[in-house]
Design a binder for these strands. Structure first.
Lengths: 208, 208
DNA sequence: GTATTTTAACTAATCATATTAGTTTTGTCA
DNA sequence: TGACAAAACTAATATGATTAGTTAAAATAC
């Protein structure tokens, strides 16, 4: 009978914590209600259904992550911006495995345009147009980065990687591969423009 | 009372078909039993639990995919082998979205060492050692490829990509980025060996 | 060929969880 | 203060996984 002072935020935070502890698929209304100190049916005053809750958790995760990425990129540009964005995403996924799983699974199906994918789009598009990479190719680049980063985070979460070789190094190397790929695009485009001979990309500067 | 002639294979095929039609999370014993012409409890003569079934579906998917990859690679080597392997995986994921989702989600947690990830390992390791890429780096390369290909397939499945720009082109471009990355590693290693100055990698040969 | 054992189907029952219906309580606002 | 809306509750329903216990078909032993 007492009133908890619940709002969407508190509920999503509790749901996120549960998802991180148990995994999304084990996130239940029972467990969530227990954690919030209410009975399961009371949740329906705040949420339409369990499935919808998962969808909102996804949106909440993207929003949080989008903010973290934005914060990291203040005053940073060029390749370094991409690197940092990738790292922030990867770290977020490590810290919030359950929420990140929701973000990957419940992708954009349930309405809720995923704003931070949009935010990431912006970053990549800006970086690409700062170089001479066409918008169509920027779209390719965006898809490639998202695929790599999300795929890596999911595999790492599922412990699909043996642990004898540092996982973080693999991730970083992949990011450098992709950044080098952008440079290739840029150079290909430049040499087209200049109509000159093929100019080799410089390669990543900091990797063994 | 009549006896269906069920075996694991038939059951997994029906489960796979259902997963592809409905998605893994909607794969239920009810639906599966109905499709097989038996009552739900009878399934327990063949399968330990729904969760275990999903795990076996994952293993079955990896095995099938592993065979397809092997078949494709007969008589093919070098970069082309990598390209083909990536395409086969991507096609498989497109044809069997539900099963592939199981393969990504239920990764190796539930026992069942995933043999075809091993098969892919073999391919990548062989390709790397044919060049001068160390074993540790081959591990990085393997992780990077898996992440990219699985991540891309999942995002494509979830329709996270706008459809105005061909998705397949994005995928192919990413594969070329990663192949170029392997070449970079190779060159980096060669120039170390020769103790020469840094030699810029040549870049991928066939992309705009 | 019959008897025994195992296998795979069944029905009936249980349990967990999401969800709905209907009620009560609490806080807000005129 | 008194009406109203929001948010909690209890009780009930539905669905789906799972278990218990039963029966019939196939395989095996004699």
């Amino acid at each position: 009978m007492p009133r908890m002072n619940l709002d969407k935020r508190k509920i999503l935070e509790a749901a996120g914590a549960l998802a991180n502890e148990l995994s999304v698929k084990k996130l239940s209304l029972n467990a969530l209600a227990a954690r919030l100190g209410i009975k399961p049916p009371s949740l329906y005053n705040h949420v339409e259904s369990l499935d919808r809750l998962r969808g909102e958790l996804m949106a909440y995760g993207w929003e949080t992550l989008g903010n973290e990425v934005s914060d990291t990129l203040i005053g940073v540009s060029g390749d370094e911006a991409i690197r940092r964005a990738c790292h922030v995403i990867y770290d977020y996924a490590s810290r919030n495995p359950g929420v990140f799983e929701a973000m990957a699974y419940y992708n954009s199906e349930d309405g809720e345009g995923n704003s931070p994918a949009d935010r990431l789009s912006d970053i990549v598009y800006r970086l690409c147009s700062a170089r001479n990479v066409s918008e169509a190719q920027a779209t390719h680049v965006l898809r490639i980065f998202r695929s790599y980063v999300e795929g890596f985070a999911l595999l790492a979460r599922h412990r699909s990687f043996s642990r004898d070789i540092p996982v973080r190094e693999s991730f970083d190397l992949g990011v450098e591969f992709l950044i080098a790929g952008i440079h290739q695009l840029e150079n290909a485009h430049c040499s087209q423009l200049k109509n000159g001979a093929e100019q080799p990309p410089e390669g990543s500067e900091n990797h063994a």
